[in-house]
Design a protein around this nucleic acid. Structure first.
Lengths: 338, 338
DNA sequence: AACAGGGCGGCAAGCGGTTGCCAAAAGTTG
DNA sequence: CAACTTTTGGCAACCGCTTGCCGCCCTGTT
């Protein structure tokens, strides 16, 4: 394995060119624009490159070409299993397209998000903002200077993939009412979360239409550790069922309710959201609004890549809605007969 | 916000230099080597840079300096919560040190791992290999040309962070024997996993010393979906307790055992490994050998950064052992009295 | 007053590629 | 075979930044 050249460092395009007896420009073209060079030449170059174990420097490449072949994925919290699936989905799709993923944890902070967007403008060809905490104006500004796709953060200013939780909220309400529940509590997530606002709004509207008695508690940080506070608050409302911002919070509530001796679903029904890892094996298994999260990630990548492709500029989709459905497990049951 | 220069693209060092009335070299030094320039000059430059919203191009910077300020983290499976914690731990520490993390999923394949190592040699200043599937020879080769730290894959050829599961295996065995178990089964993980080999070896040695009757099943893919096969195999051995390669597999087994009506822990005790997300809220909550995974990630970063620092070359630690302990929850109990 | 030395800033040569432009070679056509 | 088109490869100018080297100027020393 010839991994180093005469100078002892990794081989460069010049080493390849010298050994193949051509100019560097020819090597460059042979490798990234194969049709531009004669077949025999190209094959010779490829052979030499392989022998030398030549790997083009992506830095140098991007410096001169302006493209980095990397896209950045900004998530509020890498710890959250919900984003795991997004990470995985985008990772797959990007790899298939020859792109590198740059993962950034913005720690639920819009400042960090804006900062990353700014700092990485040269580093990435585009950005996927998962559950962005930015304002519309900030998104507009960002989208004006770089390719952006948002996930679960609709905005007129950038193409978006939304997971249709409102649809699932309706299903959840139907499920709960058919079980006889009439006092239902919405357990809210972060105040700055767009999805949270959406879910609450749908919940409120639909509940009113059905003449249900609703309440709302929160906001809570979407972590299992916030579950205790959330559970206590929900119990205090006197509701017999909760629709919870996400599964993390719901799982935390499950634990707290057990501690307090409140049986799920006999005394209280719980519906989560997202169907994350763990929702199927917690105790009891969680009824949840399942989202094709990984697929959402893949779709976001496609939309971003389409944006990047000069050929079909403008023709690309601006909005993708991912269908959701209610997955009924053990955490919901008939309303307690008082 | 002046985000673009006269040419309409992001401002470069030249724009800053022009506006500040100095040479680009001075700007460069002012920004990355502050002591090298006069204070007044530096402040003027900083002011202009801020006004212009100037962000240095990391590509250009690394091209000329040779450093990328990025390190790559190679994990076998981004989906596995175990690696989540490593991702998080390294991410934190790297960010603090001003480095970018490049996350690569090697899909449990040594080929992909070797490939990434090669392809990214220029992209990253160093590599952290989590649970590497590479051979000793491959690690040696890689370590000879780049900075490397391995996690849970000891090798004389590269600095390593190991999580001391053997220690925990001893604790687990003590726990199980004190509960009266004498027929214990080890449920194995991937054949190519170094930790798996380590755990099995410790298990075997310690069991022999204690005169226990042991068996072994596997290898199994460390996913919950393999839990069914693993559970069935384990049951067939007639063991009353299992020590399982990791929590993922253990959780999968829990589900299967419930389906089959085998009660945990009354009929069968289960001990997992890693204490991942979910281990505390599965049903029953899993007794597991808890590892300070996130901390392992942080330590790995420190060791890598030390390697990179020319000042203390050679003086850096070659091995860090992270202590583990048994966390007893609900999945272990007294041996069934037959 | 002459000189040594340190602080500070500029010049210019890269780093490893890409790409517009040009010219030579090869192929086409009548 | 001339005139013309197409293919193919080389030249050289960048891309944005770093850094070795040089020289200017200001101080301090003798």
């Amino acid at each position: 394995m010839a991994e180093t050249n005469a100078r002892g460092s990794a081989p460069t395009i010049r080493d390849v060119a010298a050994l193949a007896g051509v100019a560097t420009s020819t090597v460059s073209r042979a490798l990234s624009n194969p049709d531009r060079v004669n077949r025999a030449t190209r094959e010779r170059i490829e052979k030499v490159a392989a022998e030398l174990n030549y790997v083009p420097s992506s830095q140098a490449r991007s410096l001169s070409s302006g493209r980095t072949n990397a896209i950045a994925l900004l998530v509020p919290d890498v710890t959250n299993p919900f984003y795991f699936d997004i990470i995985r989905g985008t990772q797959n799709q990007l790899k298939a397209a020859g792109y590198t993923q740059l993962l950034v944890d913005t720690e639920e902070s819009s400042e960090m998000e804006a900062d990353a967007l700014q700092k990485m403008q040269r580093t990435a060809d585009g950005f996927i903002l998962a559950a962005s905490r930015l304002t519309d104006a900030q998104i507009l500004e960002a989208a004006s200077s770089q390719a952006i796709v948002t996930i679960n953060r609709s905005s007129a200013n950038a193409p978006t993939v939304v997971i249709d939780t409102p649809g699932a909220v309706v299903q959840a309400l139907e499920h709960l009412t058919s079980l006889g529940h009439s006092r239902i509590c919405y357990v809210g997530g972060p105040a700055s979360s767009w999805s949270n606002a959406k879910r609450w709004k749908t919940f409120e509207d639909e509940s009113r239409d059905r003449g249900l008695s609703t309440s709302r508690v929160g906001p809570f940080t979407p972590k299992t550790t916030s579950g205790a506070a959330a559970a206590d608050a929900a119990v205090r409302t006197g509701a017999t069922a909760c629709i919870v911002f996400n599964d993390l919070l719901a799982i935390g509530m499950l634990q707290r309710l057990r501690e307090r001796g409140i049986r799920v679903p006999e005394d209280m029904s719980i519906v989560g959201c997202d169907d994350i890892f763990g929702a199927d094996f917690c105790n009891p298994p969680l009824t949840t609004m399942a989202s094709p999260i990984e697929q959402a990630g893949r779709v976001a990548v496609s939309m971003l890549l389409a944006q990047l492709d000069p050929l079909n500029s403008g023709s690309s989709r601006r909005l993708a809605v991912m269908p959701t459905h209610l997955t009924v497990r053990g955490s919901t049951g008939p309303a307690p007969s008082i």
